[in-house]
């Protein structure tokens, strides 16, 4: 029984697929932003004087990094309404991606912070700056520069992970693809094309990351 390839369905569905790409990019960018906020705040809290705050951060990282993303997003999807937070699937997906990415970002950024020479911190204190100011103005940028490749790699991961958000039918590329597939039964053609669309999304993001690096992290070092 021969299977004849027919990419015309993909061609007809291209506008929908491209909108799916936009959905994926939107989820990814919003998720990265949230992950970045959680990452930086988490690193600051991880070195706080308050033991309970450090414990919360350690516990958070431990739980998130050792449980599956699919379970995390189901948990949020069904648990948040129980505490009175009714969110649509896309908002839930953004929170799940941000929380998951944030836990990894904490570990990565923390590595960057630890790579900063302690003389930098002492110079800041000697100039009369406070702990928070030293972190924000002296440590953060060189720390981010040091771990930029791992952090952006993690963010590409986050983007690809967003396909799992189709499980709660968030609006993104994989859920669009599933719909087209079930309408047309052209599984191979659809997922073959979607593979390339994800590749294109990843490349686009890498270009963006390179531009950001050029803009903010290109100061000379020895």
């Amino acid at each position: 029984m021969g299977y004849t390839l027919d990419f015309s369905v993909v061609w007809h569905a291209m506008p929908a697929l491209l909108w799916g790409c936009v959905g994926t990019l939107g989820l990814a960018l919003a998720g990265m932003t949230l992950a970045m906020v959680i990452g930086v705040a988490g690193v600051a809290a991880r070195d706080s004087k308050a033991a309970w705050l450090r414990a919360i951060v350690i516990g958070f990282v431990e739980v998130v990094r050792n449980t599956p993303f699919l379970v995390q997003i189901f948990f949020l999807f069904f648990a948040l309404p129980l505490i009175g937070l009714k969110l649509n699937p896309t908002a839930t997906a953004i929170i799940a991606l941000g929380v998951n990415g944030g836990a990894y970002a904490i570990e990565i950024i923390r590595g960057g912070v630890q790579s900063i020479h302690k003389g930098q911190v002492e110079a800041g204190y000697a100039l009369g700056l406070h702990k928070g100011q030293v972190f924000r103005f002296i440590v953060l940028k060189p720390a981010l520069r040091a771990i930029y490749p791992s952090l952006t790699g993690q963010f590409i991961m986050l983007t690809l992970t967003s396909s799992i958000c189709s499980a709660v039918s968030a609006y993104e590329l994989t859920s669009v693809a599933q719909r087209i597939e079930s309408d047309t039964f052209r599984s191979f053609e659809v997922y073959f094309s979607v593979t390339f669309l994800y590749l294109a999304i990843s490349w686009l993001l890498m270009l963006g990351f390179a531009a950001i690096s050029h803009r903010f992290f290109s100061y000379p070092t020895r």
């Binding site: 003389g119 110079a123 000697a126 060189p142 520069r145 100061y219």
Partner: peptide, 13 residues
């Protein structure tokens, strides 16, 4: 109090 260190400790960025 101002301080100058052996390793300069200028902020590279």
């Amino acid at each position: 109090v101002g301080m100058v260190f052996q390793s300069f400790n200028l902020f590279p960025h």
